[in-house]
Simulated assay, not measured.
Amino acid sequence: MVERLLERFLFASRWMLAPFYVALVFSLAALLVKTLQEIWHFVLNIPSSTESDVILGVLALIDLTFTGSLIVIVIFSGYENFVSKIDASAHADWPDWMSKIDFTGLKLKLLSSIVAISAIQLLKAFMNVKNISDRELMWYVIIHLVFVGSGIVLAMTDKIAGDSKGH
Rank of each mutant, 00 (worst) to 15 (best):
G166C: 06
V22T: 08
V129A: 11
S52K: 11
T35G: 14
I62G: 13
W139M: 07
A161W: 06
I143G: 06
S99V: 09
L145I: 03
T50P: 13
M98W: 04
A60K: 10
F66L: 11
F126M: 06
E3G: 05
E7L: 06
I86W: 12
L111W: 05
L10E: 09
L64V: 04
H41V: 14
F42A: 03
A119F: 04
V22L: 10
L28H: 01
A119G: 12
A12C: 01
K109H: 02
H91A: 05
S99P: 12
F9R: 07
A116P: 01
D163H: 09
V148A: 08
S84I: 04
H41Y: 15
G105T: 03
S27I: 00
T35D: 07
G68Y: 00
E136H: 11
L56F: 02
E80G: 07
A23G: 07
G57L: 07
R135P: 10
S48Y: 11
K100A: 10
K34A: 15
D53W: 01
I160A: 08
W15V: 04
L64M: 15
I120T: 15
F42K: 01
F82K: 00
S84T: 15
K100F: 15
H144Q: 14
A92H: 12
V129G: 03
Y21S: 01
S164H: 14
V83E: 14
P95I: 15
G166Q: 11
L137N: 06
G78T: 02
F26P: 01
S164I: 14
V33F: 03
L110W: 02
L36Y: 03
V129E: 10
V74K: 12
V148Q: 08
I62P: 06
V2D: 15
M16A: 15
S164C: 13
V141N: 12
L111Q: 08
